[in-house]
Simulated assay, not measured.
Amino acid sequence: MTPSSFRDLPPSGPPPWLRALVRRCLALWPLKLVGNTVATIGFFPLYFWIMKNAGQPWTLPLTAFDRLIAFWPALLPVYLSLWLYIALPVFLAKDRRELSNFALGCAFMTCIALVVFWFMPTAIPNFTIDTSPGTSLHLLKTIDAAGNAFPSLHVSFSVFACVVLARQLRDVAAPMWLRLLNIAWAVGIVYSTMAVRQHVLIDVLGGLALGIGFGLASRPRQAVAAAAVQAEPA
């Protein structure tokens, strides 16, 4: 083969974006593993304590949009996949600053939601669905009751994770199909909250506002400064 033909051969090994993702995963991995585990396990006792001890909840009204969403229990795995999805921005954080920004965003969202749950307890309507033992939703409805509805932390976590993941994938020049998969996963989780009758439109919108707000606020300072410069008139 001629030297020019060697230059035309595709490069061997994984693509650069995949190598960059692996490097991100390996950075600070003990801290990420322990921190994510402690944060996830520590969240639930307080969440369920507030659900049990808050005052009489106000039942959220159904909208016409809620009536259009078909009950789809097969989406329960998508609903539960949030706890895998929200771990991805943690393990893809490239340094302590990126890791702490995501952790603080989740912590502040949780604090805001828990305060709302305590002072303004809400619950979804009592949907007529089969939750008898042996059904796919029996365990979910037994453990996670209808309380702590507004704002939906399930939605806010997924949206916040989607925004941060989109930023991380862009930084490593990930292919478009992977970026679209990120968005599709987040959309699927948001939709599943209504399809498995865990949330209604009102608390989904509250979760969207919370997740998008913290997602924008978590942008690196350099990106915010660059956006401000671009917005200035010539």
Rank of each mutant, 00 (worst) to 15 (best):
163 V>K: 05
166 A>Y: 13
184 A>K: 06
151 P>S: 10
218 S>M: 13
210 L>Q: 07
159 V>W: 06
202 I>G: 05
184 A>V: 15
211 G>L: 08
181 L>R: 05
170 R>V: 10
230 Q>D: 14
178 L>R: 06
213 G>T: 06
159 V>A: 08
197 R>P: 04
174 A>Q: 00
177 W>P: 10
230 Q>F: 13
212 I>N: 00
200 V>F: 09
149 A>E: 05
154 H>A: 08
224 V>Y: 05
188 G>L: 04
170 R>L: 14
169 L>C: 03
190 V>P: 04
207 G>L: 03
192 S>P: 01
148 N>S: 07
168 Q>D: 07
231 A>N: 09
233 P>Y: 12
195 A>E: 05
211 G>D: 02
147 G>K: 14
171 D>F: 12
189 I>Y: 01
151 P>C: 08
153 L>G: 10
203 D>C: 06
180 L>Y: 15
198 Q>G: 02
219 R>Q: 14
223 A>C: 06
195 A>V: 00
188 G>A: 06
196 V>K: 00
231 A>W: 02
190 V>T: 08
217 A>S: 09
231 A>Q: 12
192 S>V: 00
231 A>H: 02
181 L>G: 15
214 F>H: 06
232 E>H: 13
224 V>D: 10
154 H>W: 07
183 I>S: 15
206 G>W: 00
153 L>N: 04
184 A>H: 10
218 S>G: 14
161 A>Y: 07
165 L>A: 02
163 V>I: 14
229 V>E: 11
229 V>M: 06
226 A>C: 03
224 V>H: 11
229 V>F: 04
151 P>Q: 05
218 S>I: 08
223 A>T: 08
202 I>M: 14
207 G>E: 04
170 R>W: 13
163 V>L: 14
190 V>K: 05
192 S>H: 02
206 G>E: 01
162 C>D: 10
175 P>S: 12
199 H>A: 01
148 N>G: 11
182 N>F: 00
167 R>H: 09
208 L>V: 08
158 S>A: 15
154 H>R: 08
218 S>K: 08
221 R>Y: 11
230 Q>L: 14
188 G>T: 05
186 A>P: 10
182 N>R: 06
165 L>C: 01
217 A>V: 09
201 L>Y: 09
177 W>S: 12
182 N>Y: 07
194 M>S: 09
179 R>V: 07
225 A>S: 13
181 L>N: 14
216 L>E: 15
165 L>P: 01
206 G>R: 01
196 V>Q: 03
162 C>Q: 06
216 L>V: 14
158 S>N: 12
164 V>W: 08
204 V>T: 12
150 F>P: 01
173 A>T: 11
190 V>E: 02
164 V>F: 12
176 M>N: 14
180 L>T: 15
157 F>Q: 12
213 G>I: 02
184 A>P: 09
178 L>M: 12
189 I>R: 04
216 L>S: 11
164 V>L: 12
178 L>K: 10
197 R>S: 04
165 L>S: 00
220 P>R: 04
223 A>M: 12
228 A>H: 03
162 C>R: 01
232 E>P: 05
226 A>H: 03
148 N>L: 06
173 A>S: 15
151 P>T: 07
218 S>V: 10
206 G>A: 05
174 A>D: 00
195 A>R: 00
146 A>T: 10
191 Y>C: 14
198 Q>N: 09
229 V>K: 11
197 R>W: 04
212 I>D: 02
162 C>P: 04
218 S>C: 12
223 A>W: 13
180 L>P: 13
184 A>G: 11
156 S>P: 07
158 S>V: 15
